[in-house]
């Protein structure tokens, strides 16, 4: 599904290399986790994959089902099935959460040549999915992320993901800031979406999330590269011993 090959990325504005030959492959239906110290480039990777401005790819490629993502506009990547749950979801004053969701869903449907959802259909779906995530009607009316608590913002990202039904879901520290119950809700939401045709790339600092969302592969990222990949036990190792030994071992 997602294939990242020797990706080199620097900042557009300054001469700072952030990704330094990152390679990674997530096959269809699998869940991969990325762990790594602060500043190792995890969020940068997620932004570059979804097409944010300000980065320059100096080498390598990233493809979704064989199609290079790097040439596409962000909205084309979204229409192709890529989704990023932001580490820091953005506030949009004055725009109702429901309006935002509906505009997004219909934009993607249009891009795929499908009919727009009627307001009735849309409302039914959004209410059901919001209920699963315990997002109340009040929050759906409020402006996007404005005044939402940290945990509410994260749940709202998962609601968007559930509505858009992407095939490749990237989640950047969705678990940070969630209380125990919210973590369970979000994990259930993600697990409900797990499907042979859908893949996940889950960026996290904590093994705890991975108890709920069982990964197929765990990657350790450091200084712009994947330095080690393994099974779920790798996450346990990080949790217990930190990155020190792993990084030393990787050289």
């Amino acid at each position: 599904m997602l294939k990242i090959d020797n990706l080199h990325v620097k900042l557009e504005e300054e001469d700072k290399q952030i990704l330094k030959g990152l390679s990674l492959e997530v096959p269809a239906g699998q869940v991969h986790a990325i762990m790594g110290p602060n500043g190792s480039g995890k969020s940068t990777l997620s932004y570059v994959l979804s097409g944010r401005d300000g980065y320059e790819v100096t080498d390598g490629d990233a493809t979704l089902d064989g199609e290079s993502l790097l040439e596409m506009e962000p909205e084309e990547r979204a229409a192709a099935g890529l989704f990023l749950a932001f580490q820091y979801p953005v506030e949009i004053p004055g725009v109702g959460n429901m309006t935002f969701l509906r505009t997004a869903v219909n934009a993607q449907r249009k891009a795929r040549g499908q009919d727009e959802l009627s307001s009735g259909e849309f409302l039914k779906i959004v209410r059901a999915k919001a209920k699963d995530l315990q997002i109340d009607a009040e929050m759906l009316k409020r402006p996007v992320n404005v005044g939402f608590s940290g945990g509410e913002k994260k749940r709202n990202e998962i609601l968007q993901m559930a509505m858009l039904e992407p095939r490749m879901c990237i989640m950047d520290e969705t678990d940070s800031g969630l209380d125990v119950d919210a973590m369970r809700l979000v994990s259930e939401g993600v697990n409900a979406l797990r499907d042979a045709g859908r893949s996940f790339l889950v960026i996290t600092h904590y093994q705890r999330l991975l108890n709920h969302i069982k990964p197929d592969v765990v990657h350790i990222m450091s200084n712009g590269r994947i330095v080690k990949s393994g099974g779920p036990e790798l996450a346990l190792e990080v949790e217990e011993n930190g990155y020190g030994d792993l990084l030393a071992e990787a050289g």
Binding site: R52, E75, F83, F86, V90, I92, T103, A104
Partner: peptide, 12 residues
């Protein structure tokens, strides 16, 4: 804000 919207599928 624009990037957030676009990453959800809206054009510019």
């Amino acid at each position: 804000q624009l990037f957030y919207c676009r990453s959800r599928g809206m054009d510019e």
